[in-house]
């Protein structure tokens, strides 16, 4: 499966191109020079101990966090900043940033569904408000997406009535409603009870098989092993090791990787 996707990956511009990314929170440097690319159609899984910066890096991709140094491109476009004619870097307009974000879907650890709207309304909201999609069209698409994640029966339920796994699947449908070219998963199953993790991973796996470009931060090593095209191990704000899952999990080359995997597996 990984080979099929690798051959299907389009050559040319990478979907994500991160160059020497640095990020600090006050005086704490959390990202110390991250350089990596994600090809179109590729599924990259990022693993590492907490505090390693993997979630922070993920949030830099759609500019929920501002980077302090370096350049980050998504599908060829510089994210969060623009290059002025005289070669300087200036902060981009909110409108432009929003436009780029609309093409990147994000799934959060705590779901972040809108509690004052039903599942269906949650999924319909962004296409209607951001893309100005007509209501009936948005509704039809939303129902289709809820069906895709197996929740068409729950269309009129409020998030408070849904289990964690159901909420997360609605959240995935909501992100997909904007037709993104890239999906970011921030520990999407970490807040779920074990028996509900599977239903969410199933949806994520399906997305991967359909060719979606995905960057996944997770602790689910089984998922990483089976679905990832590439695994990146981060620790202390740097990429320690990256490679094919078989290689990273079975034959890790760096000692820090070995230590981490020993603790997890």
């Amino acid at each position: 499966m990984n080979e099929d996707r690798a051959s299907a990956a389009i050559n040319g511009l990478p979907m994500v191109d991160a160059r020497d990314i640095h990020k600090s929170f006050h005086h704490n440097e959390v990202l110390r020079g991250i350089t990596m690319q994600v090809r179109k159609g590729e599924v990259v899984v990022m693993i590492g101990p907490s505090g390693s910066g993997k979630t922070t890096f993920l949030r830099c991709i759609n500019h929920l966090e501002k980077i302090n140094k370096g350049k980050l491109y998504v599908d060829g476009e510089l994210v969060g900043y623009r290059e002025t004619p005289d070669g300087k870097i200036a902060e981009d307009t909110e409108k432009n940033i929003a436009r780029i974000r609309a093409e990147i879907g994000m799934v959060f650890q705590r779901f972040n569904l809108f509690p004052h709207m039903t599942a269906l309304e949650n999924v319909m909201e962004a296409p209607i408000q951001v893309k100005r999609t007509p209501k009936d069209q948005a509704e039809a698409r939303a129902r289709g997406l809820l069906r895709k994640v197996g929740l068409e029966q729950k269309a009129d339920a409020y998030p408070a009535r849904l289990s964690g796994g159901q909420q997360q699947r609605v959240a995935i449908a909501r992100a997909l409603a904007m037709d993104p070219k890239l999906m970011l998963f921030d520990e999407a199953t970490s807040a779920l009870d074990p028996e509900l993790v599977g239903e969410v991973l199933k949806v994520m796996r399906q997305l991967a098989e359909e060719g979606m470009t995905m960057v996944v931060v997770t602790h689910e090593m089984g998922f990483a092993r089976e679905v990832a095209d590439r695994v990146i191990f981060m620790d202390g704000g740097v990429i320690v090791e990256e490679g094919q899952p078989e290689q990273v999990f079975s034959a890790p080359q760096q000692e820090r990787t070995q230590t981490f995997l020993r603790m997890i597996l």
Binding site: R99, R101, A102, I104, F108, R110, E125, A126, V130
Partner: peptide, 27 residues
């Protein structure tokens, strides 16, 4: 209101004002 709400709104392509109007202020 949890900051995650505005983050979710932004991640869907909403501007701060749209997120305020549709998601945060109603709550």
């Amino acid at each position: 209101i949890d900051t995650g709400q505005m983050e979710a709104a932004k991640s869907l392509g909403m501007t701060y004002w749209l997120g305020m109007r549709r998601i945060v202020l109603p709550q």
